[in-house]
Design a protein around this nucleic acid. Structure first.
Lengths: 240, 240
DNA sequence: GCCTTTTATTAGTCTTGCCTAAATTTCTGA
DNA sequence: TCAGAAATTTAGGCAAGACTAATAAAAGGC
């Protein structure tokens, strides 16, 4: 009897994976509960069963860490999610603010075979519509160090690489003002007391709150030349 | 709180729908149990909860009948299933014996919006790869009267319209001998004592058991002319 | 028409995954 | 250091959907 992970289990593993911070060893129960909008006891209970299945290492009151097996499962689900998002945008004409919920359900229903065929059909994209990297079939996730827009300072010439937010309102706004992965901009000014920023994007002046700036990952461009950063396979959403 | 049907509920409704025979008023508990490979008490229990939800009319010991609401839900799931099958074959290059299990999981995970977009993307197909008709978004299922191959007699010139079997072995065999929806053949001989048939298909002589013949739905062709039966939108699987 | 077989239901249990309330451990700040 | 706050776990329930065993109803054979 090979036990296939349930939808619930897959969602817990996915949440734990994305809640891992670079510096921190373990993920807290509370963070998982908030991320999945379930109660703390629900998380405690699930953690125990994940530990029994060898998906996480768990020391009571100290948080959890994914095992190799748990990480592999989490990455499979994330891979499914991101490839489905690319498919929906690229093939079926979804806009990038519509795909998250759809992918959230489909990611648990697709077979490895189907995802591999979708991946080939799409030409092996490396990033999803939000700029998130797509794990490979054997669980490799290529991550690059990037700063947030909030960390940038006046005068910097930047390229938007990734958006760390899936809410339709935020995505629609970013799309409207042109801050999609692949877009470039320049920091005109940063207000020291509240982090409010002013960008120049395609000649337009644009105010950006510190909150929003924290959700945009960017890289610095050399002077005015647009360096190739290997992001040309990201297809911007065209809804003109 | 709007309650979305669970996967289990959707599968029960789908099973009940497909078990309805033309003549018979109600579907038997036993038939549902066998179809879904669950125990009889499981069916009894689920039937009660379906009746509470207004999905079926139920009189103990007499079987069930779908209500309008139940039928609508069943047709939505069947529509999802069949459009997904066409998509997998047409767009991703699946063969018709591979699609059933994949569609069986996806049918519960797709939104109405997604299915509508897939339908448009495929050019509004009317039949799935097995020749099964695809219900419309508003729950219309266009069904035509057809005979089974087993009911045909010697000399008849026939067109294969639909295959009532989803097992890979059967489908692979039918594909190999060319008995796909859209194919035409002639009945050479029928053995009275066991129903064994001999077909002429593209000049080849082919024996077909009565069991297999019962699974093929056919229409009669006038003489040697291939009449248009509106089935030209069925795309045969090409795996040469 | 009765008796056996088949079909269906009821009764009671199990597992999963959620909940609230209560108890416990850890953290934090004076 | 130690009290209160915050985080976590334990205890105990609930609902869905499956199961087996036992009971009841319907159908078929003589």
């Amino acid at each position: 009897m090979i036990a296939v992970p349930t939808i619930s289990v897959e969602n817990y593993l996915k949440a734990i994976f994305s809640l891992q911070k670079d510096g921190e060893e373990r993920v807290k129960t509370k963070a998982i509960a908030e991320s999945l909008d379930v109660s703390l006891p629900s998380v405690s209970g699930m953690i125990k069963s994940l530990a029994d299945d060898g998906m996480v290492e768990y020391e009571p009151y100290r948080g959890v860490r994914l095992t190799k097996k748990g990480k592999k499962t989490a990455l499979r689900v994330i891979r499914n999610h991101r490839l489905i998002e690319v498919f929906l945008v690229q093939t079926l004409g979804y806009s990038w603010d519509e795909v998250h919920n759809e992918a959230e359900r489909l990611e648990h229903a697709v077979s490895d075979t189907l995802v591999a065929r979708i991946e080939a059909f799409l030409g092996f994209p490396r990033f999803d519509p939000h700029g998130d990297p797509i794990p490979t079939a054997d669980g490799e996730l290529h991550r690059r160090e990037m700063m947030t827009l909030g960390d940038a300072s006046s005068g910097m010439h930047l390229k938007v690489e990734r958006v760390l937010d899936q809410t339709p309102e935020v995505l629609q706004y970013l799309d409207r003002v042109g801050l999609r992965p692949g877009a470039s901009c320049r920091v005109v000014e940063v207000l020291a007391f509240d982090g409010q920023m002013f960008l120049d994007i395609d000649g337009q002046q644009l105010p950006i709150s510190a909150t929003l700036a924290a959700k945009l990952l960017v890289t610095e461009l050399d002077d005015d030349s647009e360096r190739d950063t290997g992001r040309d396979d990201v297809q911007a959403v065209d809804r003109s």
